[in-house]
């Protein structure tokens, strides 16, 4: 694997990708491809569809790299947003299958999966923050983000007014932001090489 660009920040890699540097796209994939695939798989629940989603998202990174504005947010956030949006589009197109399988498809378990130490750390950190949320907020965030449900679908499914769903999502994300922002738990990419 070519890790010549390993010392560059994500944002610098996106600038290089904007100038058609393929090795920069490869490096971004090496940093976030696995997380992207795990996310896509959890949302769409089908390995072949998850691959399509990730490929589509990284090609969007390649195509729209010249429009990336570092001042508006981190490159990793931008990339994972592209992945998530595509995964949700796919799962909404596959409505019937999802309704059928949601209850039976458990969250993937770590067993048998060889995890990078850094990825494991991030996962534990996010899961522990989620556990500290009130149940109703955690449920709203998980069903929306991992389940791909729209706010109206959530309101219907949970038998709550739309306004309640909106405030749960907002309160949940705000609290997550505080919990993850705690000193000592700052999330940042660290070279593993």
């Amino acid at each position: 694997m070519n890790r010549q660009l390993a010392h560059l920040s994500d944002e610098a890699l996106v600038l290089l990708a904007a100038r058609s540097e393929q090795s920069a796209l490869a490096e971004l994939y090496d940093r976030y491809g696995r997380t992207a695939y795990g996310l896509a798989l959890r949302v769409v629940r089908d390995p072949a569809l998850a691959e399509d989603v990730v490929q589509d998202a990284f090609l969007a990174v390649w195509r729209s790299a010249p429009t990336f504005v570092p001042e508006r947010g981190k490159a990793s956030t931008w990339i994972l947003t592209l992945v998530h949006r595509r995964a949700v589009d796919v799962v909404r197109r596959e409505q019937r299958r999802r309704a059928d399988s949601l209850e039976r498809a458990p969250e993937p378990v770590a067993e048998g999966v060889v995890e990078d130490a850094w990825l494991r750390l991030q996962r534990e950190r996010v899961q522990s923050a989620l556990r500290r949320l009130p149940d109703a907020q955690r449920e709203a965030l998980e069903l929306a983000y991992y389940g791909g449900f729209s706010q109206s679908e959530l309101a219907e499914r949970l038998g709550q007014p739309l306004g309640t769903i909106k405030s749960r999502m907002f309160a949940g994300l705000s609290r997550m932001r505080e919990l993850l922002g705690d000193p000592g738990t700052e999330m940042s990419w660290t070279s593993t090489t």
Partner: peptide
């Protein structure tokens, strides 16, 4: 809110693609 949302992406076990 973009940061906590992106953090959720790391909340799942990710098998290698």
């Amino acid at each position: 809110l973009g940061e906590p949302v992106a953090a959720l992406a790391f909340g799942s076990v990710a098998p290698a693609p």
